[in-house]
């Protein structure tokens, strides 16, 4: 099986990729685009080995959505309430639910690939104080879990409700007192001095620059050409252009293409030994 080599790229590349892919998934409602995006998202999920299906909810949405939507020309049948059930609203409902599933699938990939330390690395220079707060919170949560268990061990009682109130009270006092200590200690160690570094250190290499330029150019082309228009209601109507489809496919499949290329390169180098 192929590993996801795209995750090793610089965080900025990953961020550009996910921003553009998720925005296009919301924006391009063209049926072919939806199919391209959802197939790419599902293949990427498979590449990342995520088994997370929330399809049931979206099936319900896809059924409810057309039932409430009455605008449309081609009437399929009448609902018991007397509202016409049209082909256009059915198609529109299906397209919308596809779009929602796609966005959810992309976010599943995003959660696996763009981890919190990568996000902090990206915004650490831009918003230093917010990033400091976020990284502190991410440390505090596991610490509080440990402390919570410690307090629970020290306070055994029959009355669960009373214990809970006591434990919460101790937790809050303890964490606030130590917070002040933390602040003083940070100050003593030179918080706020210039030239601080972050925990993760990523280097922007040539391949990162090449890939991010490629992503930006492809997204820019798709925004500027704007040829993939579609209307569902009242009449289903669409335009198409083959180069736009090809570029959108390449954009969505970027991580998969890059992973396959890397794998082939690896195989080739091994075979030469």
């Amino acid at each position: 099986m192929i590993r996801c080599y795209f995750s090793d790229y610089h965080p900025i590349v990953l961020f550009i990729y996910f921003i553009s892919v998720i925005s296009f998934a919301i924006f391009l409602m063209h049926p072919v685009c939806l199919l391209i995006s959802i197939s790419a998202a599902i293949s990427y999920l498979a590449l990342l080995r995520i088994k997370k299906y929330m399809l049931a909810i979206f099936l319900i949405i896809s059924i409810i959505n057309p039932l409430f939507n009455h605008a449309g020309v081609t009437i399929l049948f009448y609902l018991p309430t007397g509202n016409p059930f049209t082909l256009e609203s059915l198609l529109y409902g299906i397209a919308t639910s596809f779009m929602i599933i796609t966005v959810i699938a992309w976010f599943c990939c995003y959660n696996k690939v763009v981890t919190s330390d990568k996000l902090l690395y990206l915004f650490g220079k831009l918003l230093p104080q917010l990033s400091l707060i976020i990284s502190m919170v991410l440390r505090l949560i596991p610490l509080y879990k440990i402390r919570f268990n410690k307090i629970m061990h020290a306070n055994p009682s029959d009355n669960a409700f009373k214990t809970a109130a006591l434990v919460v009270s101790i937790m809050v006092t303890w964490s606030m007192e130590t917070a002040i200590d933390t602040a003083d200690s940070m100050k003593a160690r030179g918080y706020g001095l210039p030239n601080r570094t972050t925990f993760s250190n990523y280097k922007l290499t040539t391949r990162d620059i090449v890939v991010s330029i490629g992503l930006v150019v492809m997204s820019g082309y798709l925004i500027c050409s704007n040829k993939l228009a579609v209307t569902y209601i009242p009449i289903f109507n669409y335009t198409q252009s083959l180069p736009d489809f090809i570029i959108y496919t390449i954009l969505c499949y970027t991580p998969i293409i890059l992973s396959i290329m890397e794998e082939l390169k690896w195989k080739y180098l091994i075979s030469k030994i």
Binding site: I133, F148, M176
Partner: peptide
Amino acid sequence: KVQLRELVMIAVMIAIAVA
């Protein structure tokens, strides 16, 4: 320029909310 103590207090409140 926020005081460091205030910043840490904010972090603690967020951590309590998330926990």
